[in-house]
């Protein structure tokens, strides 16, 4: 049961990353490891910034 749950969570994570959902947790880990001196963006700011970036240049989608 527990391994099934873990498997489902991992599968969900893969799907999220394939469809390009911004990953705030990963960003936080990155900021803590690489830039501990900086204050990371809040979750809302991060998501807003990611969404804006996704739709302002060609290169995210095709015909």
């Amino acid at each position: 049961m527990r391994s099934a749950m873990r498997w489902a969570r991992r599968a969900a994570d893969v799907v999220r990353r394939v469809i390009g959902v911004p990953d705030y947790e990963r960003y936080l880990v990155h900021m803590r490891e690489r830039h501990p001196e900086c204050v990371p963006l809040s979750r809302d700011r991060f998501l807003a910034e990611r969404l804006a970036a996704r739709y302002e240049k060609p290169g995210a989608r095709c015909c």
């Binding site: 893969v14 990353r17 960003y27 990155h30 991060f46």
Partner: peptide, 15 residues
């Protein structure tokens, strides 16, 4: 942690 993120190749492939 935003645009530049090392990612497993199968995930990049799907993306």
């Amino acid at each position: 942690g935003r645009d530049y993120v090392p990612t497993n190749r199968w995930i990049v492939f799907g993306h």
